[in-house]
């Protein structure tokens, strides 16, 4: 579990993500069509739907990895459509943390440097960045694997490193795209617990999954996407 709660947490209830009538086309194919969605600070939203429904596209738009063909995407008060490439890069660096299904760690770097990298890109000194990265890895229970390169880590360990990297710059919003999709059951379970704990600590979370169990355990709200449209949304009730 991370030792520190992300520091850039907006006030509870504040709208962190606002999608208004968003459309995304890939050539002739429309991946998202007229999607409007609001996510408030402190929420954990699971975006669910069948393959090809547009879940990951939605996440890419929220993370600033992609731009909408129409409509607006506002995250943390920032209209992503108004940002240039550099602005989007800085947005990703400061406002969001991304966890991918296939981890996407840099094979060149040991686990510790994969995490520290994000801070160093922002001008943090090597020592301070490694210090923060070590703390994050300790919080995730893999501090002893810091010197190991990704190729020698297990799937679960890689995903924990990816989560640590996502948290490095204390993002307001943590985005996870099928975070357990490439993991065995045991490793997946550990990642679910990790995300649940992060949400419990106040981290706003958006995760894309078609794993209903994951959604039920991590999310406070589930949004259904079908054929590029929001098909429905429901609150998750759980006893904790």
């Amino acid at each position: 579990m991370p030792s520190r709660v992300p520091s850039r947490v907006p006030a509870d209830g504040e709208v962190v993500v606002r999608l208004t009538d968003v459309r995304k086309d890939f050539g002739d194919c429309t991946a998202l069509d007229g999607v409007s969605l609001e996510i408030r600070a402190g929420e954990a939203v699971a975006v669910m739907g069948p393959s090809g429904s547009g879940k990951s596209t939605l996440l890419n738009l929220v993370s600033g990895l992609d731009r909408p063909s129409a409509g607006s995407v506002v995250v943390g008060g920032e209209d992503l459509g108004a940002l240039g490439e550099k602005g989007l890069a800085l947005f990703r660096r400061h406002r969001v943390g991304m966890v991918f299904q296939f981890f996407h760690l840099l094979d060149d770097l040991p686990a510790l440097d994969n995490v520290a990298l994000v801070g160093q890109l922002d001008g943090l000194g090597a020592r301070a960045a490694r210090q923060r990265a070590t703390e994050l890895l300790e919080g995730l229970g893999i501090a002893d694997r810091g010197d190991v390169h990704p190729a020698s880590l297990s799937g679960g360990e890689r995903q924990r490193v990816a989560v640590a990297r996502a948290l490095m710059n204390r993002p307001a919003l943590l985005l996870a795209d099928e975070p357990t999709g490439a993991l065995d059951t045991r490793s997946g379970e550990a990642v679910v617990e990790l995300l649940t704990d992060l949400h419990a600590l106040g981290q706003t979370l958006v995760l894309v999954t078609h794993d209903a169990r994951l959604a039920e355990r991590c999310a406070s709200r589930v949004v259904e996407v079908v054929d590029g449209r929001i098909a429905g949304a429901r609150a998750v009730r759980r006893d904790r």
């Binding site: 990703r92 660096r93 094979d107 890109l121 922002d122 990297r165």
Partner: peptide, 16 residues
């Protein structure tokens, strides 16, 4: 290509 994509995803600017 993948490394560059990842670096951009975590906030590396085009100039970087």
């Amino acid at each position: 290509r993948k490394d560059i994509g990842v670096l951009k995803a975590v906030g590396m600017t085009p100039r970087q």
